[in-house]
């Protein structure tokens, strides 16, 4: 397995891990969003979706552990990359301007990533590691979103996720070697669509709770 370690330790290897786990998250986000959309179907639809999910039992546990591993890998390689990049230019420029390549998303990846991490912890504490014996998930969510501060945090977090993904999505394809003049514009378009869908899809839920219910 030495060869695998060698690859993973290289700069491209770490990026590959980043890309694969990042894309994994994107898939997860997509599924998560699809599930959450049942909220618009009302209390029962949402609760039954949650029950269905939990009835999966061990499969769900495996998926959760998988996500956790993905998170660890994504975060750890992210830290290594970030650290390596800081070291690569010990003396900064007095004046440095973008020549037009960078975007808000690309500039802020480590920071938006870190914020997403904080949010995920916060999110899990709110909705995952809570006592669910006497209450339904819908109620928990409704409770949480009755507080404008919570709503604010959630919306802001979704913006951050959107920004992170706006670069991350196409960047992952580039890292995996999938860049071709023919279909790169499509991937870039998808990247923007995806970040909008994620940002707005998740972002509207708290608003829905706050104002509609």
């Amino acid at each position: 397995m030495n060869w695998l370690l060698d690859i993973i330790e290289s700069s491209i290897g770490k990026k590959l891990l980043m890309a694969l786990t990042g894309l994994g998250f994107c898939v997860f986000l997509f599924g998560h969003l699809a599930g959450n959309l049942t909220i618009y179907g009302g209390k029962d639809a949402f609760n039954s979706y949650a029950e269905h999910l939990h009835s999966l039992g061990p499969i769900l546990t495996v998926a959760e552990i998988g996500l956790l591993i993905f998170a660890m890998v994504h975060i750890l390689s992210g830290i290594f990359l970030f650290w390596g990049n800081l070291k690569a230019r010990p003396q900064r420029y007095v004046m440095k301007k973008s020549a037009g390549g960078r975007t808000i998303g690309s500039r802020t990846m480590p920071y938006t990533g870190f914020l997403v991490l904080l949010f995920v912890i916060f999110h899990l504490m709110n909705f995952h590691f809570v006592d669910k014996t006497n209450t339904t998930i819908f109620q928990i969510v409704q409770n949480a979103f009755s507080d404008p501060i919570y709503v604010g945090i959630y919306i802001a977090a979704m913006l951050v996720v959107g920004i992170h993904v706006s670069h991350g999505f196409w960047s992952a394809f580039q890292t995996l070697g999938a860049n071709h003049p023919k279909y790169m514009p499509l991937i870039k378009g998808l990247s923007i669509c995806f970040s909008l869908i994620v940002g707005m899809g998740f972002g509207f839920l708290p608003i829905y709770f706050l104002f509609m219910l």
């Binding site: 060698d6 290289s10 700069s11 491209i12 770490k14 990026k15 990359l81 390596g84 990049n85 070291k87 690569a88 230019r89 973008s98 020549a99 037009g100 390549g101 960078r102 690309s106 500039r107 990846m109 670069h167 196409w170 960047s171 580039q174 890292t175």
Partner: peptide
């Protein structure tokens, strides 16, 4: 790639500044 890493260059994060300059 191994040599590139050994030389102390940073990691690409697809910022695209390179192709712009």
């Amino acid at each position: 790639v191994q040599k590139m890493d050994d030389c102390g260059f940073g990691n690409c994060t697809n910022e695209r500044e390179c192709e712009a300059v």
